[in-house]
Design a protein around this nucleic acid. Structure first.
Lengths: 337, 337
DNA sequence: CGCGGAGAGGTAAACGATTGCAGCGGGTAA
DNA sequence: TTACCCGCTGCAATCGTTTACCTCTCCGCG
């Protein structure tokens, strides 16, 4: 499979393999003419270094692993794309895994990545507590940074957005739009961002005197279907609030759709907000007001942290928590002024 | 990083490394008690085989590479997920690359995958001719199967849908819905599926006496923006057709949206169809009639072909072209009866 | 009693790169 | 002239497995 080896190049250039290696990867000085000869020979033979052999020797693969809860969720897709982009600059490759929203497969993926000697791992854990052991164990062996969500009981690098601040912006906005009450359509509080967004909503709703209530707090999962169903539950249960604050865009898309089919006008009778700013929020009817996640920034920070951590051993530094402040994107699913 | 090696296990179990290897990977018979001792020792030490060393030795990585034009396109995301799923069954890993719709990066990605000794490559080439050299070169060195699209001038395995048949179903459907004329909103004919869908549309439109015309054939790229813009062009240019047949769902979503904003009612004044059946077609207003791509089947076939090809050398077999017949999914953006 | 064959285990050579160490000129200082 | 240093090279070890080949033992059979 790997046709031409360093020995072939060495033979052709009339030098030793050591010299070839040094000439090509520039480990140490090589005289100019020898270097030229080597480069030429390599060129002619079409030599390319075998990354497997190199990896075995130097135990570095120039590959980072990434594990996301679900590749179907466009938010994570955007994140993946951004990470890929950021890594490209460093000449690193991405090994992508999908945890299928299941801590068990997630753990399996993480282990696989570790034994594959990736240089670092970027993970958005799917569960706030069930994911802890695997993440912990992995972080002890490799540089690891958590993205967007983080698990309890570990101290690793993390980068994401300030969910509380984001929710403040959302609540203020619907309040200004005239809403006096709001329901929260979220996901079960099994991970950090679900918790924080929920907490942020409650806190700021209270502060800003927005009526809420337990019967107006519906927790399911991050999916369009849940958004639709939640609105059904709400409608069946009596009084409707004046706003629906959703924990992510999928839920919000479902909610908007359900409102339409039930003749609840958005935003006049009901304001709806999302979270993440995935591409399709633009296309909803009406286009969705949502919170923009700066995936580019998040990814950049993550690979920076990973690179930093690669210098020191794992867990040699204090963990960094980078929380970016996201911006509200106002569209037509809420009222302005 | 890789703490415990096969030698440690051997020492602990009081046998040679060869025996350990045989006991664990079952290459040859090992007496039961020795096997037990080895397994136990491995267990206690927490031994896991180093895939890098193994790969170097056997030149097989249990990894397949996949290159998609754009990970942002939900259709490819779905494909990736399906491939990942299909590979999981074989205990293989997926190395995912995004070509960013650029043949140059695509070529770079392919080369990177080759030197990384992946066992096979699944690629959906981004360009029908510019992608040829890289795909060709790669296919000569590794099992390779093209997905969805294929490039000209090579003979590799391919699996996708029968675009012509799909278009026949689409055209028949809008015809039955009463449309006497239709525009085609597609992508520039730089790849096979763009070409085939376009050709299929024209052929069957003619057969079924659906009026078309050059001014009603608008070619851009696979994006929502293009769909919106194309409708604008159409509207500005005079007479409107009675149907818009779109080359993919993104274009169709844009088209539907543009119709709405211009007061062109869908499906009464204008029928619109998509292609791919991405998740968000359900959410459009109205929900989109589209062609369902059986991504699961496609992925299964692809990994099967890859596995077959791994047995023989590359290019030892005749290439297989597997075209699945997709189903039309009728929703509310077209008229029925 | 000898021989052949099977079954189990060990020895050591790969796989293809990187790199510590040593050798070897040649230049410089004493 | 000698001693030393410095800059290039080459030798060979090394990373952790797998596997071809060899050895040893045991058993059955003629």
């Amino acid at each position: 499979m790997q046709r031409v080896t360093i020995a072939d190049v060495a033979r052709r250039a009339g030098v030793s393999t050591a010299t070839v290696s040094r000439a090509l990867s520039g480990g140490r000085k090589v005289s100019a003419d020898v270097a030229d000869r080597v480069r030429e020979a390599a060129q002619e033979l079409g030599y390319a270094v075998n990354p497997i052999a190199r990896a075995l020797r130097v135990s570095r693969t120039d590959t980072v692993g990434m594990v996301v809860p679900s590749i179907r969720n466009p938010f994570f897709t955007a994140l993946v794309e951004s990470v890929e982009h950021a890594l490209g600059a460093d000449g690193k490759e991405l090994l992508l895994c999908d945890a299928q929203s299941d801590p068990v497969t997630e753990a399996r993926r993480l282990d696989a990545l570790v034994t594959r000697n990736v240089d670092g791992i970027i993970v958005s854990p799917c569960h706030g507590t069930d994911s802890t052991p695997a993440v912990q164990r992995t972080a002890e062996r490799l540089p690891l940074v958590q993205l967007d969500r983080f698990v309890g009981g570990t101290s690793t690098d993390w980068v994401g957005v300030d969910d509380i601040a984001a929710m403040r912006a959302v609540v203020e906005h619907v309040r200004e739009g005239g809403a006096r009450s709001a329901a929260y359509l979220g996901a079960r509080l099994t991970n950090s961002s679900s918790e924080l967004r929920h907490a942020g909503f409650l806190r700021h709703a209270e502060e800003l005197d927005l009526e809420t209530g337990p019967q107006w707090t519906l927790l399911g999962d991050y999916s369009v279907e849940w958004g639709e169903r939640a609105v059904g539950l709400l409608a069946d249960s009596g009084r409707l609030p004046e706003a629906l604050v959703c924990a992510d865009d999928l839920i919000a898309l479902g909610a908007v759709r359900a409102c339409r089919t039930r003749g609840i006008t958005v935003p006049d009778r009901m304001q709806v907000t999302g979270f993440d700013n995935i591409e399709f929020t633009r296309l909803a009817e009406p286009p969705l007001t949502t919170v923009d996640q700066p995936t580019r920034r998040i990814a950049d920070e993550a690979v920076r942290l990973l690179a930093d951590a690669a210098g020191d051993g794992p867990a040699a530094r204090d963990a960094a928590h980078v929380a970016l402040v996201p911006k509200l994107v106002v569209r037509d699913s809420t009222r302005t002024g």
